[in-house]
Design a protein around this nucleic acid. Structure first.
Lengths: 242, 242
DNA sequence: GCGACAAATCTTGCATACAAGTTTGGAAAG
DNA sequence: CTTTCCAAACTTGTATGCAAGATTTGTCGC
């Protein structure tokens, strides 16, 4: 069959995706081949292959002869990602017919984790969990194809929220998740599907899609400067004579 | 955006996918790196990169130190692919609200092409068109993410049908498509979604998922032997027929 | 001081070389 | 004649080298 445990092939991929899922890697981050290669003590070849795979998954982009960058979804792409998620997640819930005991337990365990992270104020963990919730639901269907699709869409969702989301209403999202689970427990998957669409709409509405990706975000953060919206500075400060 | 015209990067990928979409490449086909490389007059490096991308898309698999092979979806995978398509396509149709004129025209043009291919008995073209129909619908939504997802699922669907489908009821599928378009023209997207699910169920039901992938298929074909189902796995293939 | 230009320094793109593992074919033994 | 075993031939896996292009930096002219 396949080797399951020593997946050294996907090691780099998963490390990067994991970094994105926990919001440790910001959109627009440059991932130089040599840089990553030395980090993992491998040659550029393997890094390059990993990047090719990630590019296919819509997670990184290459700018020719400049480097690899974590994608910065445009407003248009952001809307498409949310639309895709609405279609898939609602379709998934509608196609479900029953919630097994073990499935219910897994969902409850997940909600408990969310509560814990909220209480602890662990924002990185929370970001990861909020995205994972939807993957947990897909996992109930047993359809690994849909799970993988949603995993990638979730990664992109997190990147989107890092660009366009001013502040993250964790509690609101958590309640949305609770409502969806409640509907599923009632066996009302149609309602769950509708709640899911509402939930995603809510999150999307919370985005400020007029905000442009800030190319200086990481530098700004490194210098402990206030975020872009506070200063209200124009994005193109091309040597205004002052 | 992206460079659209001189896509020399995806040339190999697209050539292989195109070969699958038109059923010229059978599941299980070996795609040696050197072989493909010499075919495209490039080095193994680029072929390898293309294969990595195709692997991510679920279209090829690598068997370590043995070679790259076009995937032979298992019965389980086949069911997951169809389930995923039902979820996505039904969800997509349900989320639609109106059919634009140009959209209607495109669908009609597609149905006309299907009719033409049926009349001409051009089976390769027909296979391709039957899959493309569902992509055309996704294209109406303008959501390129979903389009790409469905494109890959369609490729896998064709591989599945090449393994498990004994005979292809083109007319039945075509009528299914016509019914879906009719419902869309009426503005009844819920009905279209239901018809779509039915249509996919119909196709899936037409599969013989007990049939194992035949590793000798291409050799068998090269030797002009009858397909596997005609003669049992007996070692003495007595052909009493004329 | 300021802008333009050119070289130096990166970066990926791609080919090639070699290492490691798999299959195959044939020789030798029974 | 059949079976076993070993070596030769392929295959992918990985690293490395070089070329081409982009960016940056330093310098010169004004």
């Amino acid at each position: 069959m396949q080797d399951l445990s020593p997946q050294q092939n996907d090691q780099i991929d998963e490390a990067i995706v994991s970094g994105i899922l926990s919001a440790r890697i910001r959109p627009g981050t440059r991932l130089g081949e040599s840089e990553v290669a030395s980090l993992f003590n491998v040659s550029r070849t393997r890094v390059r292959e990993a990047m090719m795979r990630l590019e296919q998954r819509g997670i990184v982009k290459v700018s020719p002869r400049r480097g690899w960058f974590v994608v910065e979804p445009s407003a248009e792409e952001a809307m498409m990602v949310y639309a895709a998620r609405r279609v898939i997640e609602a379709g998934l819930l509608r196609s479900m017919e029953r919630l097994t005991e073990s499935g219910r337990d897994k969902l409850h365990a997940h909600l408990a984790e969310e509560k814990l992270a909220i209480a602890a104020g662990d924002r990185q963990r929370l970001t990861c969990l909020m995205g994972d919730f939807h993957i947990r639901i897909a996992e109930l269907s047993g359809n690994t194809i849909l799970v993988e699709i949603l995993r990638d869409l979730t990664a992109r969702t997190i990147l989107i929220s890092l660009i366009y989301q001013s502040d993250f209403h964790a509690m609101q999202s958590h309640l949305g998740h609770c409502r969806i689970v409640a509907a599923m427990e009632e066996g009302d998957f149609l309602k769950a599907a509708e709640l899911s669409v509402e939930h995603l709409d809510e999150v999307e509405t919370g985005l400020d899609l007029t905000r442009r990706p800030d190319p200086l975000a990481d530098l700004r953060h490194s210098l402990s400067l206030p975020p872009q919206n506070a200063a209200a500075s124009s994005n193109a400060p091309r040597k205004a004579k002052s």
